[in-house]
């Protein structure tokens, strides 16, 4: 008998948000369950931050509903904020205060907080704990903001670009922390530009573009959706001709690579097609699309945006 799924911690249903005439989020629906990491992946201006802010109760949806722990986070703010940890993109960390002061103060907001000093050490902020936030690097400020989001032992964590500006070591620490939270049953929604992050952390990835949800699935399912050949060339390629000659679909995979919907049996045929035209073929392999390729294909970004 399958175990019944626990009720979702975050339910977004038909969320629509407009600023003036511009639609930031259009009819977006998603859920996040306890112990699940959902990554919102999308280009700048795709509505990720607006979605996070609506879930945090900072903005009111124009249409649709948002519920956290089963209640409206704006109207029932008091029922939500004690169990909610938020990392906003613009920070909101007081620049004249020190990380230690802020963590001590924030710890007092919550009923069962983590030990501030232990959290500071855990995030590698021991050296700068007594310095004003103003004097910290971007990555250090991000870690302070992360610590402030987690000090109250939240059951729902909303992390808007948590690793932006972090060095690789700090990023790995953050990933480890997120995985720990997940194991502890926290429902986590994070936004990111980094495919590696989504691929590594997320149980499910929601790809958004222009405020619309265009894909929502496990990273492996998204990435495995398209198998075939990955062809690499240093020259410009007319995909329509290649597709017509070989009788298969050809699509852009970014970085001078092209996805050819053909099995490995056709490798010889593909390479002779290039040879016959004198085109350089710098690589050809059986390929499972990387999440990055899926993302580029779905959001239709030009190569350089990756």
């Amino acid at each position: 008998m399958p175990t019944p799924e626990p009720p979702a911690s975050i339910v977004v249903d038909g969320l629509t948000k407009r600023y003036g005439g511009r639609t930031a989020v259009a009819d977006l629906s998603l859920t996040v369950h306890p112990g699940e990491v959902l990554a919102l992946l999308g280009p700048n201006g795709s509505g990720k931050t607006t979605t996070v802010e609506c879930i945090a109760g900072l903005r009111a949806p124009d249409m649709g509903t948002v519920s956290v722990f089963g209640v409206n986070p704006r109207r029932e703010r008091e029922q939500v904020v004690g169990r909610l940890g938020v990392m906003l993109q613009e920070g909101g960390t007081h620049r004249s205060a020190t990380p230690a002061e802020l963590l001590r103060t924030f710890a007092a907001y919550y009923d069962d907080p983590l030990e501030p000093l232990a959290l500071i050490e855990r995030l590698g902020l021991g050296q700068v704990a007594a310095q004003r936030v103003r004097t910290l690097s971007g990555g250090e400020r991000q870690r302070v903001a992360l610590a402030l989001a987690l000090v109250g032992q939240p059951r729902v964590a909303l992390l808007d670009e948590p690793t932006a500006g972090m060095d690789p070591a700090a990023r790995r620490q953050t990933w480890a922390l997120v995985q720990e939270l997940r194991t502890g049953g926290v429902a986590i929604l994070l936004t990111t530009h980094a495919m590696e992050e989504a691929e590594r952390l997320a149980d499910r990835v929601a790809v958004v573009d222009g405020g619309t949800l265009i894909a929502l699935d496990r990273p492996s399912a998204l990435a495995g959706a398209k198998t075939g050949l990955l062809v690499e060339t240093t020259t410009t390629l007319d995909p329509a001709t290649l597709a017509e000659d070989l009788g298969v679909a050809v699509s852009r995979a970014g970085d001078g690579r092209w996805h050819v919907a053909a099995s490995t049996d056709m490798i010889a045929e593909v390479s002779s097609w290039f040879a016959a035209r004198g085109l350089p073929l710098t690589g050809i392999a059986a390929a499972r699309e990387r999440l990055e390729d899926v993302y580029l294909r779905l959001t239709d970004s030009p190569d350089e945006a990756a």
Binding site: G57, V81, L88, E90, G92, F106, Y109, L148, G152
Partner: peptide, 21 residues
């Protein structure tokens, strides 16, 4: 002055998603 900068730097907004009323 301190409150104006807290507004501008989203500090007040950040308090809005904590239990601090």
């Amino acid at each position: 002055i301190s409150t104006a900068f807290e507004r501008e730097h989203s500090v007040l907004r950040r308090y809005g998603v904590t239990p601090l009323r």
